[in-house]
Design a protein around this nucleic acid. Structure first.
Lengths: 113, 113
DNA sequence: TGTATAGTTAGCAATATGGCTAAGCATGAT
DNA sequence: ATCATGCTTAGCCATATTGCTAACTATACA
């Protein structure tokens, strides 16, 4: 029944920012250090680091430090709760359409009498 | 290349709140007036109305007034930009995996020599 | 050792978000 | 005409978010 999944909050929130989506899009192409992630954005490093931590808390990015550079990697599996939620809504929606269908069918049968 | 789609911001943001997701889930089962939408949430009407306006701005819900009751309806088509973004990311991710694959294959061929 | 590089932390300011109460308006029922 | 119902608006408060600068740490390189 998925009562109150805080993971979904984190996921959707993380994706609601264009800068974070750009970062993710870059990481989908392969791992990158923080500076390269910041590069095209025009934002300062501390700002990018904050966005990065949001992505990490959502599980969308994993990072590890190698010497003085932090390497960031996209975690596609983290998207699953979201796609599952979407599927669930679709299911509910389609069930509703089916019921509507039945309803109309019954109406037509009634008319025939 | 989908540089900066504000619609995506609205969509993801709208879905990042559990109350709004609950409202949507209810609406997926069929249209409902505002009061029914508020019912199980425990929140006051003005609060719900605000959430509703967020959903409307994202295009996820359409409403119309019939007498003194406002009827709210889920708009599943509004989800498309999001699923398209997901597909796009998946594509990038998979292209990367393919390149990785090639890379490994080449490595193995080199070894054979 | 000294210097450049790559992050990191602390803290500020402006704005957005999410909840509320109180008061108002329009419509349906009596 | 009156009253209840269903929504709406205005405005308050606390907290979160998003950007910044300045100052700091830690690693690599000469």
């Amino acid at each position: 029944m998925a009562k109150h999944d805080p993971q979904l909050d984190l996921l959707f929130h993380a994706l609601s920012d264009p800068t974070r989506r750009m970062m993710l899009n870059r990481l989908a192409k392969g791992p990158a250090p923080v500076t390269e992630l910041a590069g095209p954005s025009g934002f300062k490093l501390p700002t990018i680091l904050r966005h990065l931590s949001v992505l990490e808390e959502a599980g969308l990015v994993a990072t590890q430090k190698d010497g003085r550079v932090r390497s960031c990697a996209f975690q596609p599996a983290a998207l699953r709760p979201m796609t599952e939620w979407l599927d669930e809504q679709r299911k509910v929606w389609e069930a509703r359409l089916d019921r509507l269908d039945d309803y109309v069918m019954n109406l037509m049968k009634e008319r025939e009498k």
